[in-house]
């Protein structure tokens, strides 16, 4: 007789194996008691598991006419199906996966490489932001000077430079513009300044490119007076940077500048 705990962890097959004793007489078929295995129950909690796990000593008693041996078979224990998680090359358990290994590795490394690529870009951006934050502080910039080679600016052109964080206009005026600005009747101006007050060298107009209305950056060579035009609220400046029309109250500001030598301008 076999007594088995009621456990789904232990399975038994009712297979009898002849013992080695030779039969004394003619073999007689006897009815043996069938081993009843409890049906498997769904174990979901550790408590249920502890109740089902066999504890203590299991006893097996053997008699002449009962099965002498009980083999615990594991062949019917179901292996979970992982095929949903497997790659195509490893789904068939009988086929060798070695020939397709490179394909799977290339796929994996592609993701690793792509992630590293994006990470390198992000790291570069972070470092760049950090390093640029170490640039000159505001008090240093406030003392900044800018050196401009005047030969780079052709006649009739306006060039914009960045100076102390503001746009700096340097205009190479044509002879026509110079004569026009010098001939302007000051009494007609909102902010009366002669052209001679605004330039050191009539050929070169140096001014801060900030509209005196609300601080937009005017456009060069535009507007009704051929100088500057502010697109924000329509202020017209002439080629001397004086306000002629529109809402701005003052002429555009002239910074400190000097010509230390021929063809060189230093602002600041």
């Amino acid at each position: 007789m076999i007594s088995l705990p009621k456990s789904p962890l232990l399975y038994a097959v009712t297979q009898t194996v002849a013992n080695l004793a030779k039969p004394v007489g003619q073999a007689v078929v006897t009815q043996t008691e069938k081993i009843v295995v409890a049906p498997q129950r769904l174990v979901q909690t550790s408590y249920a598991m502890s109740k089902l796990t066999p504890t203590g000593a299991d006893r097996v008693s053997v008699s002449l006419c009962s099965p002498a041996q009980v083999r615990f078979a594991h062949t019917d224990v179901q292996v979970p199906d992982f095929s949903a998680y497997r790659r195509d090359g490893t789904k068939d358990s009988r086929a060798s996966s070695a020939p397709t290994a490179a394909k799977r590795q290339a796929f994996t490394y592609m993701f690793v490489g792509g992630g590293t690529m994006a990470g390198a870009y992000a790291a570069k951006t972070v470092v760049g932001e950090f390093v640029s934050s170490l640039s000159a502080s505001a008090d240093v910039l406030a003392m900044a000077k800018i050196e401009i080679k005047l030969a780079d600016i052709p006649e009739g052109k306006n060039m914009t430079f960045k100076w102390r964080g503001k746009p700096l206009f340097v205009r190479h005026r044509t002879a026509e513009e110079i004569s026009t600005e010098q001939a302007v009747d000051i009494s007609q101006l909102r902010h009366a300044e002669t052209d001679a007050e605004r330039v050191k060298d009539p050929e070169w107009l140096v001014l801060l490119g900030i509209c005196t209305h609300l601080g937009c950056v005017p456009l060069a060579n535009a507007g009704d007076y051929g100088g500057y035009y502010c697109p924000c609220h329509g202020s017209h400046y002439d080629a001397s940077g004086r306000i002629r029309k529109g809402p701005a109250p003052l002429n555009m500001e002239i910074p400190e500048y000097e010509f230390p030598e021929e063809g060189l301008l230093i602002v600041g």
């Binding site: 490489g113 792509g114 870009y121």
Partner: peptide, 27 residues
């Protein structure tokens, strides 16, 4: 994919080089 793996991903040196050049174009 096999060729890519053999040529690029298999060695760390070529893998790193591929990442750096790839990062340039990625940027």
């Amino acid at each position: 994919l096999n060729k890519v793996y053999q040529a690029v991903f298999r060695r760390t040196s070529t893998f790193a080089l591929a990442v750096v050049t790839g990062a340039f174009f990625f940027e």
